[in-house]
Design a protein around this nucleic acid. Structure first.
Length: 900
RNA sequence: GGGUUGGUAGUCUAGGUUGGUUAUGACACCUCCUUGACAUGGAGGAGGUCGGCGGUUCAAAUCCGCCCCAACCCA
């Protein structure tokens, strides 16, 4: 996709001209290189920091896990519309870029790319390999992003694994710890046995999986109700004891079974409650307890609780103070709890246990079953719930504050706030931030071997690696012990990527002043956070939490939420469906500007289908813009003409309409309404400027027209610049930029305050429309000469415009009424007026008119029992013309007569 | 199961918060036209009653209720 243009210097590359056809293949790479080389997008650090004159964007750094996809192209392009618009409209724009390369995703990428396993390497060796693989991907990614003309300030980039960011992550940890917002706890955690690390709630996802549902007989040791007898005397175990049935998909958890639960409303099994049961094969005796969390819909209604099979097990374990029986270890292998099954994987153990249950008579039935299991989103392995020691950030106690913080931001679209709200309202766990991985940012603590006290790193020394560096103290401040154990765990990716507003604005700790500072305080809080709607719940949420806790401020003024890119049939793109479209393919056939035109067709927040139609429409717009520019250049070669003393009516009309357009486009871009801005601009340019105005202007040759043409054309290039950066730059450089200044650093157009007789202009356009229709209907070319046209309407100063554009030799504007006969064909009622006034009489009025049972008396209309005033109805008439020539009907009260 | 969003001509889409009667535009389709740049152009035309049912109202794509379908988020 991206080729090396470094060899092209300014001198060698083709200078911008307005000759021939527009060739995006040649033009686009030329300007991409130019912009990067000339630092066109550099943030101009102000001497007097002022948050009001700069626009700052906090770009979520993409995970380094592979190639650029359409989602990237789409998201980056939307961000770029905002960046380019504000770079022109405000003083300067801060548009940085980062790579998220410290997470499990990049480790997985490295393993895939090099075909290795992280377990086979020393931590530092593996980290090195990750850095190398990521560096290659990042270089390619940068080139791709530059080839999309994303106006990032390439002097302001970062990697989440770089020392500066490591320092910041560790500072963040220390700050929250000192604020009492963090704790370390041994508790059940969500665990990926494949990655061998704890993961957080948000990193797991549902996956439908085929499995078997096994009905297993549990022997009753003691009934809760001593009077009770088995309901089903045939339900007997191998030793002829009474039994009940447990249905489970995971018999390998039998050794971890600590109790059995019955629903309080489950009458059929009430006699069991309070008794005990024996777990088959493993033999442990477990209590039978009542709890309303039992799902009566599936299975037998009696469930076993194991430590731990799912989150309900954890809840029961905590609520009923149950013992802990660990049967599965950190790698997903059975422990000695599992007796003869020790050392088997959970899958193998499951198979063998089912076989043994069957041979011992405990397996009643085994049937195929589809159900949703929780898997780790990065590797798709089923998660386990293990009791491990982890670091947590406390969140549940402050959800109200975080909700309030979210409310302080402007959400585009507004409806996306509810996702944030619902996520917070449904929060059940504090945030587990420690991970047992090789390639992350180390948690900067040591533990005293003597008393277990936590020793924090010194803020001035950060970043530190406890495995390599010594703790900041010789002896433990608590107990005086001198032996320490380094923390081996690293941070969750999100613990770092939730700090991007702080990374971007240079947050740091000043050891001398003993306070946190910003290198660029004017950047924080940032103006905009662009964000996919799929990650509002974790990335955005975590960022708000972190930044809010560190600074007491909400990190963003606004959030712009984008949807997902779908295929042409509005289905999600996926490799398995084979419907993935890559940016490389698209840009092989279309200019980058055309792809940007497509992206601008989005309504922010909605999912967005790939549409080849829009790319083609975009390509045609580029050509149109180019061709119109050539014509303007012919008609108005002077690029900065002085404004004539008197502007022709038609020119004033164009510039007044342009004022309206500037105002509307500015409003819409400021509100992230890209699609509306794009379509209105395109329509005004194409229909009004090219089809109407240019056709008139090219029949004229005067200063007034030349002035209007030049001003309008210059304005169009600027208004189109955020959407179509290449073609506008090519034309701008060819025509307006004497000193090579980019169109992208010019000031956004402002309205010029032109007044025009809008009504007369519309009348004139209607006359032209009527004459075009006349020519079309009579098979005449549009430039066919007309001898004589009479216009019965007020077209003020537009007569010349009409006769010029329509090639009328003799145009007569008359203020008298034409010699016409009039016949009333219908009465149009103004319902907005008569509705509220006459209510259910409206039906009678309509009926009377329908039957012709009405009378027009001067200004009034009598229909049925009602008299309507002039403002309540309109008479539709048909005209017959008695004079010379042919009468053309047009809208309203205007008439045009074409002579022979 | 809960929540969110959407369902408008062949396809995509505007409008919907302020209910008012020829429902916007684009692509595709049909007819005609080489206009001082553009046939990747221009002029014109045909095509929908706004997911379904019911309600409120003189009047509903627009408000209310129920249902159906789809996507996403959370269980």
């Amino acid at each position: 996709m991206s080729t090396d243009h470094a060899a092209d210097t300014d001198e060698e590359s083709t200078p911008a001209t307005l000759k021939g056809d527009y060739d995006p293949d040649e033009v686009e790479p030329k300007w991409q290189d130019y912009w990067v080389e000339h630092d066109t997008y550099a943030y101009e650090e102000p001497e007097m920091p002022d948050a009001d004159t700069q626009y700052t964007i906090d770009t979520p750094p993409p995970t380094v896990s592979g190639d650029l996809h359409m989602g990237h192209l789409y998201q980056f392009t939307l961000q770029d519309f905002v960046a380019r618009f504000h770079r022109m409209a405000d003083d300067t724009t801060y548009f940085p870029f980062g790579y998220d390369d410290n997470g499990i995703a990049s480790e997985r990428l490295t393993e895939r790319e090099l075909d290795i396993r992280h377990q086979d390497y020393e931590r530092h060796e593996f980290q090195e390999k990750c850095r190398e693989v990521c560096a290659d991907y990042e270089a390619a990614f940068t080139e791709s992003v530059q080839s999309l003309a994303i106006s990032i300030d390439w002097d302001n980039t970062y990697k989440t694994i770089e020392p500066r960011v490591q320092r910041l992550s560790q500072l963040s940890f220390l700050d929250l710890y000192e604020q009492g917002r963090e704790y370390r706890q041994r508790a059940p955690t969500i665990w990926c046995p494949d990655c061998e690390t704890a993961i957080s709630q948000v990193e797991q996802e549902d996956k439908e999986k085929g499995t078997t549902f096994n009905d297993i007989a549990f022997e009753v040791v003691e009934f809760g109700d001593s009077e009770a007898t088995p309901d089903d005397p045939d339900a007997k175990g191998p030793d002829d004891t009474p039994t009940f049935t447990i249905s489970t998909t995971r018999p390998e958890l039998l050794p971890a079974c600590v109790s059995v639960f019955v629903h309080p409303e489950d009458d059929a099994n009430q006699h069991l409650v309070g008794g005990t049961a024996r777990v088959p094969i493993f033999g442990q005796e477990v209590p039978i307890i009542e709890d309303d969390r039992v799902d009566l819909e599936t299975g037998s209604g009696v469930v076993m609780c194991c430590t731990f099979g799912d989150q309900t097990d954890i809840e029961w374990y905590q609520a009923h103070d149950l013992p802990l029986r660990i049967a599965i270890d950190e790698s997903g292998t059975m422990t000695d709890r599992a007796g003869e099954y020790e050392g088997l994987s959970t899958e193998d153990a499951r198979e063998e246990i089912i076989t043994d249950l069957d041979s011992q008579g405990y397996l009643l039935e085994s049937r195929d079953h589809e159900h949703a299991v929780q898997v780790h989103e990065r590797c798709e392995h089923e998660v386990e719930y293990l009791v491990t020691e982890q670091w947590y950030i406390e969140m549940l106690d402050r959800t109200d504050e975080y909700l309030k913080a979210g409310r302080e931001m402007d959400w585009y679209p507004e409806k996306m706030f509810s996702r944030y709200q619902h996520w917070i309202e449904g929060l059940e766990w504090d945030w587990c931030i420690s991970r047992q991985r090789d390639s992350g940012i180390p948690i900067p603590v040591w533990y005293c071997d003597e008393c277990g006290d936590t020793i924090l790193a010194d803020k001035a020394e950060l970043p530190v690696d406890p495995l390599a560096d010594d703790p900041p103290v010789e002896t433990c401040p608590e107990c005086g012990g001198s032996e320490f154990t380094p923390e081996e765990d690293v941070f969750d990716t999100w613990a770092t990527s939730s700090l991007t507003p702080l990374i971007n604005s240079g947050w740091d700790y000043d050891a001398d002043a003993e306070e946190f500072t910003f290198d660029n305080p004017e950047l924080y809080p940032m103006n905009l956070r662009p964000q996919g709607h799929d990650i509002i719940s974790f990335w955005l949420f975590h960022t708000i939490v972190k930044c809010y806790e560190h600074t007491g401020e909400v990190p963003f003024e606004s959030v712009m939420v984008n949807g997902m890119v779908l295929d042409e049939n509005r289905e999600a793109m996926s490799k398995s469906k084979g419907n993935v479209v890559s940016p490389a393919e698209v840009l092989d056939s279309f200019p980058v500007d055309a792809a940007r035109y497509w992206a601008a067709g989005t309504s922010i927040g909605d999912d967005f289908p790939f549409k080849e139609n829009d790319l083609e429409a975009g390509e045609r717009l580029l050509q149109k813009l180019w061709n119109a520019s050539k014509l303007v250049d012919q008609l108005a070669p002077e690029t900065e003409p002085a404004e004539p003393d008197e502007l022709a009516a038609i020119d004033r009309w164009l510039l007044a309409s342009l004022d309206d357009t500037i105002e509307n486009i500015t409003e819409k871009l400021a509100a992230y309404e890209f699609s509306k801005a794009r379509d209105e601009l395109r329509t005004f340019f194409w229909s009004t400027f090219c089809d109407d105005y240019l056709e008139i202007a090219k029949q004229r040759e005067d200063d007034s027209a030349a002035y209007a043409l030049s001003v309008a054309h210059r304005t169009f290039l600027q208004l189109f610049a955020p959407f179509l950066p290449h073609v506008t730059e090519e034309i701008w450089q060819a025509r307006y930029a004497g000193n090579g200044d980019s169109v992208h650093t010019t000031d956004w157009p402002e309205t010029r305050g032109y007044d025009a007789d809008i009504a007369a202009g519309e009348q004139a356009m209607a006359v032209i429309g009527a004459l075009r229709r006349y020519k079309t209907e009579n098979g005449l070319p549009l430039n066919a000469d007309l001898d004589r046209v009479e216009v019965f309407a007020d077209v003020a100063g537009f007569a010349e415009a009409i006769s010029g554009a329509m090639h009328v030799a003799d145009l007569v504007v008359r203020d008298d009424a034409p010699e016409i006969g009039t016949e009333i064909v219908d009465i149009d009622l103004d319902y907005a007026t008569i509705g509220p006034k006459y209510g259910d009489q409206v039906g009678d009025i309509e009926a009377a008119i329908g039957q012709g049972d009405y009378e027009i008396d001067g200004e009034q209309l009598h229909a049925g029992d009602v008299t309507l005033e002039a403002d309540a109805f309109e008479v539709r008439e048909e005209h017959t013309y008695a004079g010379e020539g042919e009468l053309l009907e047009t809208e309203g009260d205007l008439a045009v007569v074409v002579g022979d």
